[in-house]
Amino acid sequence: MRTLSRFANVVAAGLLAVIFVAFILQIVLRYVFNWPVGWTTEVSLLAWLWLVLWGAAFVLKDREEIRIDFISANVGRRARMGMGIVGSVCVVVLFAMQLPAAYDYVSFMKVEKSSYLNTRFDVLFSIYIVFSVAVIARNLWNIVQLCRGKDPAADAPLTPGSAL
């Protein structure tokens, strides 16, 4: 599992490096050589899209997500676990419902290509399908963990007597 986590982090760092290099290259080409190019902007935007969705799917841990917890922070562990299960079930259902339409749309985008890189949009936007499947899988795992008495967001097991 650690190897996969490292791989996910390396991919994210690589995408960030691509954005940085493209940005610097764009500045140098425009202001030093007076040669404005558009492909660097396209590379930066596409790498940003992949970085955000890749990071949310594989790098960000549950305890690192931003949560509005003013309700769950003021209830007991059992209620918090129940709220976590309900929330995760809702996420699984909603993402599963949108997945066929998202797949159809991404597949349809094979008819379009990017302006400068001449890459098909279905390839560029395929990261959204990967992201959706990862969100579903993560929330299914959260449901299992919560039913076992562990809180994935806290990254610490709940007390033995508090399981549902």
Rank of each mutant, 00 (worst) to 15 (best):
D69M: 06
T40N: 12
D104I: 03
N142E: 01
R138Q: 09
L60E: 03
A73T: 09
D69N: 13
G14C: 10
A47D: 03
V92E: 03
G84S: 13
F131Q: 05
L15C: 08
L94Y: 09
F121Y: 15
M97Y: 12
V75T: 11
A101E: 05
F95L: 09
Y128R: 03
R80D: 14
I27W: 07
Y116I: 02
W54R: 09
V18K: 12
V135K: 06
V37N: 12
S72W: 01
L60D: 00
I24V: 13
L15H: 08
F70T: 08
V144M: 07
R78N: 06
R30H: 14
A56H: 13
G38R: 10
Y128I: 12
V135E: 00
P157G: 08
A163Y: 01
G161R: 09
V123C: 00
T41P: 01
V11A: 01
A79P: 00
E112S: 10
T41Y: 13
V89G: 04
L94Q: 02
S115K: 12
V21M: 14
V92P: 10
V144Q: 04
V21Q: 06
F95R: 01
V89P: 10
L29T: 12
L60I: 09
I27T: 06
S72L: 03
I19T: 02
Q26K: 12
S115Y: 08
Y116C: 06
F20H: 07
T40Y: 12
V130M: 05
I27C: 09
M97A: 11
V133Y: 05
V59K: 15
A101M: 14
A56V: 06
V18H: 11
S72P: 09
D155H: 04
F20K: 03
A153P: 00
R77A: 14
G14P: 12
P100S: 05
F33A: 11
Y31K: 14
N9T: 01
L29M: 14
V28A: 13
S88Q: 00
E64I: 02
M83C: 05
R120F: 06
E112Q: 13
V18E: 00
D104M: 10
I27A: 14
L53C: 07
L146P: 09
F121W: 15
K113E: 09
D104H: 13
L16F: 12
Q145E: 14
A22E: 02
A12Y: 06
A17I: 06
I68C: 05
L16G: 15
D155S: 12
G87T: 08
I27E: 01
A96D: 01
T119H: 04
R78T: 11
N9V: 00
A96H: 03
L124R: 07
S126F: 15
F23R: 11
I19M: 15
Y105V: 11
Q26M: 14
S114H: 07
V28I: 15
A96Y: 09
A163K: 12
I127W: 07
L53D: 00
D151T: 03
